Lab assay of single mutants.
Amino acid sequence: VTLFVALYDYEAITEDDLSFHKGEKFQILNSSEGDWWEARSLTTGETGYIPSNYVAPVD
C-alpha cells in the first residue's frame, strides 16, 4: 500500500471533500477520478476527496 502525505493544509469546499493538515498521511482508495482522489486519513479515519496536487508519496 502506497501512502501519501499532505504537503499543505486543505479546507474542504464541499461535503465530499476531506479537510486535512500538512503532514497528515493518507491511504488512497481511488485515484482514477483525475485530479481529485478518494482517500482515507490515517489520522482521523475519515474518507473523502482530496486534491492530488496537495499530496506526495511517502518514501
Rank of each mutant, 00 (worst) to 15 (best):
A56M: 10
G45C: 09
K25V: 15
T43D: 10
R40S: 05
A56I: 12
T14G: 15
D59F: 13
T47F: 07
T44V: 01
I13S: 12
H21S: 12
S32E: 11
Y54T: 05
F20P: 00
I13F: 09
K22V: 10
S31G: 10
E33V: 12
I28C: 04
F26C: 01
S31D: 13
W36K: 13
T47E: 09
A12Y: 02
S52M: 09
W36A: 05
D35P: 12
D9Y: 04
V55T: 04
G45P: 00
A39P: 00
S41A: 07
E15N: 12
A39C: 05
A12R: 07
A39K: 00
L29M: 08
G23K: 02
D16C: 15
L3G: 04
Y10S: 02
L18W: 04
W37C: 04
S31L: 10
T14P: 03
T43F: 10
D35G: 12
L42W: 06
L18F: 07
P51Q: 06
K25L: 15
E33P: 10
I50D: 00
S41G: 03
T43M: 10
L7R: 03
D9L: 02
T44S: 09
A6H: 00
S19C: 06
W36G: 03
L3D: 06
G48C: 02
L42Q: 07
D35T: 11
E33S: 14
T43S: 13
D16R: 15
I13A: 12
H21Q: 12
S52E: 04
A6N: 00
A39M: 05
H21Y: 11
A56T: 11
Y54C: 08
E38L: 15
L7G: 02
A56D: 05
Y10L: 03
S32R: 10
W37I: 07
S32H: 11
T2A: 11
F26H: 01
Y8G: 05
Q27A: 09
L18D: 00
A12W: 02
A39E: 00
Y10D: 01
S52V: 09
S32Q: 13
A6C: 02
G45I: 02
E38R: 09
T47A: 07
P57M: 09
E46L: 14
A39F: 03
G23D: 06
G23L: 03
I50S: 00
E11K: 10
H21I: 13
V55S: 01
I28S: 02
Y49L: 13
T47Y: 08
N30W: 07
P57F: 06
N30M: 07
L29V: 08
V5P: 00
W37G: 00
A12S: 11
W36D: 03
S41P: 00
G48W: 02
L29R: 04
K25F: 15
T47R: 09
R40T: 14
D17P: 02
L29D: 05
T47D: 04
S32C: 12
R40F: 08
D16Q: 14
K25G: 04
H21F: 12
A12K: 08
D16G: 15
E11Y: 11
L29P: 04
A39R: 00
G23A: 03
A6R: 00
G45D: 06
G48I: 02
T14K: 14
S19T: 09
P57S: 07
S52P: 08
F20T: 03
G34M: 12
L3Q: 08
L7M: 08
V5E: 10
Y54L: 13
W37M: 06
D59W: 12
Q27R: 08
T14V: 07
D59R: 09
F26M: 06
W37A: 03
S41M: 06
V58Y: 13
S32G: 11
E24V: 03
L3W: 09
G45V: 01
T2D: 13
V55C: 05
D9M: 04
P57T: 05
S31Q: 14
V58Q: 07
A12H: 06
V58H: 07
I28F: 03
Y54Q: 05
V55L: 11
I13V: 14
E46S: 10
L42K: 04
K25P: 05
V1C: 15
W36E: 03
Y54V: 05
F4S: 04
F26Q: 00
E46H: 12
V55F: 10
E24G: 02
D59Y: 13
D35E: 13
H21D: 06
S19L: 02
E46P: 00
S41N: 14
S31H: 11
E46F: 11
Q27M: 14
G34H: 13
R40Q: 09
L7Q: 04
S41Y: 02
V55P: 01
T14L: 10
V58N: 06
I28T: 02
T2L: 12
A12I: 01
I50H: 00
S52H: 08
W36M: 11
E15I: 11
N53L: 09
V5F: 09
Q27C: 11
N30D: 14
E24R: 01
H21K: 15
E11R: 08
F20V: 04
V55Q: 01
L3C: 09
I50A: 01
I50E: 00
F20Y: 01
T44P: 01
P51E: 02
T2C: 14
D35F: 13
S41Q: 05
A39T: 02
K25T: 11
Y49P: 02
I28D: 00
N30E: 07
G23I: 00
A56P: 01
F4T: 04
G34I: 11
E38S: 08
F4P: 01
E33N: 15
G45T: 03
T2I: 12
T14E: 11
E38G: 05
K22S: 07
G34Q: 13
T43H: 13
D16W: 15
D35K: 10
F20E: 00
L42H: 04
D9E: 07
G45R: 04
S19F: 03
D17R: 15
L3N: 06
N30Y: 06
H21L: 11
D59V: 14
K22P: 04
D17I: 13
S31N: 13
E33H: 14
D59T: 12
E38A: 08
S32I: 11
Y10C: 04
N53M: 10
E33L: 14
V5H: 05
A56C: 09
S19E: 03
G48E: 00
E38W: 15
D35I: 11
V1R: 08
L42A: 05
S19H: 07
D59C: 13
